[in-house]
């Protein structure tokens, strides 16, 4: 498939979002309803819960050419499924620290909490993360990445 990103001109980067249906996806909708302008780089995958996010999804995205990945769920203690985001928080925090060993700049991944009423917060989160990824530029092939020095990372 090559219908996508044909005339990208390198202005846009590929940012994948994994959002829980109940809070953050709703927050992104609220931002839309409020016409809070955002950068266009992000594409959102809707999931039931941030706890559904398998770190594997993020790795696959980053290794397959995504320049950034954003995960967003309900605020802690406000999970639609009571405790899903607690699991997400633990997994994703550990996962973020693991990224350098995979040769990936951990700044290419963020996780955050946005509720369904926080349209403006969502706008801020998207804008800031997009800026952050743009500052890093397009992701290089993993083997060429300067961070990909396992020995150095292990020594640290």
């Amino acid at each position: 498939m090559s219908v996508l990103n044909e005339s990208n001109n390198g202005k846009e980067l590929r940012i994948v979002g994994f959002l829980c249906n109940w809070c953050s996806y709703g927050g992104a909708d609220t931002a839309g309803v409020g016409r809070f302008t955002q950068p266009t780089d992000l594409r959102i995958v809707r999931l039931p819960c941030s706890g559904r996010v398998n770190p594997l999804f993020i790795v696959k995205a980053l290794l397959n050419g995504a320049d950034g990945v954003l995960v967003s769920g309900c605020h802690p203690r406000d999970c639609h499924y009571a405790e899903g985001n607690f699991y997400a928080r633990r997994r994703l925090e550990v996962f973020k620290r693991l990224l350098p060993t995979l040769g990936i700049d951990p700044r290419r991944f963020e996780y955050t909490w946005v509720s369904a009423s926080e349209g403006q917060r969502w706008q801020k989160v998207v804008s800031e993360f997009t800026q952050q990824v743009h500052a890093l530029g397009p992701a290089k092939f993993v083997a060429d990445a300067p961070e990909f020095d396992v020995l150095k990372v292990c020594a640290e």
Binding site: N8, K11, A28, D29, G32, I44
Partner: peptide, 26 residues
């Protein structure tokens, strides 16, 4: 979702069309 998450949050028609295509593809 090409309204709340595309057409309502940006005015760049070219970028929006690309994004909408991506979302349809997904």
């Amino acid at each position: 979702n090409i309204r709340e998450q595309v057409s309502w949050i940006g005015k760049d028609k070219e970028a929006n069309t690309r994004k909408a295509t991506d979302l349809v593809h997904m």
